[in-house]
Design a protein around this nucleic acid. Structure first.
Length: 270
DNA sequence: CACACAACCTGCGAGC
DNA sequence: TGCTCGCAGGTTGTGT
């Protein structure tokens, strides 16, 4: 589910409601996630939430002594509920705050996880393996061009690689390649500098737009107040198989590559 | 090393 | 109606 704009939206809303609140306790309903929640998590009791950050698709909650690292996988949802409610199917854990609010994690497909660390170093180690954030200045055409020249991979696969750029998933990869008029299955080293530059611009543009619309709901993404994102109404090519290309009216194609669906216009994208 | 692909898990929609 | 199949926003591990 969640790519960068969705996680950023969740972060902003959590910040509004949970900063400086004390965690009264954690309740684990279902520990079958990608990684088992460490036993140490119990120590989060009585900790104060000092900072809430996002890096790539990770949410990081800093307390007095600990760092919680949350990844939402494909279908993870974080909800902020106003009082303790009975858990429902696929709820995994609750953080009960001292203002009676509850941060609840729900994840149908169980690809997400919650980890706890007691030092910034360990968090930094995880983050250091990731490429730059697409909206930061460190992600620019010079950086991307250097990498595209070195690799022979499909450009779509390359921009989805978190070690190269962190935070772009399939939706935004398809959308930004469409706007940039680059076929998703082009070998990355065939891109000209100008094309790389256009791609960088469009990745930033698409992500900013998606942020503005509070993310994309395809199936089950919701923000913490149980509302859907709106960017799915603005998608130009993702899941538009069989429909007309906005620019040339030709039919949008879909092919499957490395387990991902690529949507594109054969005529517009070179 | 670099890339492609399966696997992890569940629910849903399409097609029969 | 009900079954089976394929598919989904992500990441990791394995194999070529």
């Amino acid at each position: 589910m969640p790519e960068l704009p969705e996680v950023e939206t969740i972060k902003k809303e959590l910040k509004k409601n949970c900063l400086k609140k004390q965690i009264n306790k954690i309740i684990i309903y279902n520990n079958k996630l990608k990684y088992i929640i460490p036993k140490k998590i119990k120590k989060i009791k009585k900790q104060i939430i000092l900072k809430i950050k996002r890096f790539s698709k990770f949410l990081i909650i800093k307390t007095n002594k600990y760092y919680l690292l949350i990844h939402l996988g494909m279908s993870g949802n974080i909800l902020l509920i106003n009082k303790i409610k009975k858990n429902t199917k696929h709820d995994h854990w609750d953080l009960i705050l001292n203002n009676k609010k509850v941060i609840r994690y729900n994840d149908i497909r169980k690809f997400g996880y919650l980890l706890i660390f007691n030092s910034k170093k360990k968090i930094k180690k995880i983050i250091s393996k990731l490429g730059p954030e697409p909206l930061k200045k460190t992600f620019n055409s010079k950086y991307l061009y250097k990498i595209t020249k070195k690799k022979k991979r499909c450009i779509h696969n390359l921009i989805m690689d978190n070690k190269i750029i962190s935070g772009i998933g399939n939706i935004y990869a398809n959308e930004s390649l469409y706007l940039s008029k680059i076929k998703p299955y082009r070998k990355s080293n065939s891109l000209s500098y100008q094309e790389t530059k256009t791609l960088v611009t469009n990745i930033k543009l698409i992500l900013k737009q998606a942020l503005f619309y509070k993310g994309t709901t395809i199936r089950n993404y919701k923000n913490i107040n149980n509302n859907y994102g709106f960017f799915q109404n603005k998608l130009l090519v993702y899941q538009k198989f069989g429909q007309q290309c906005l620019f040339c009216k030709k039919t949008i194609q879909k092919i499957k590559k490395y387990g991902r669906n690529l949507y594109f216009c054969k005529k517009c994208q070179k």
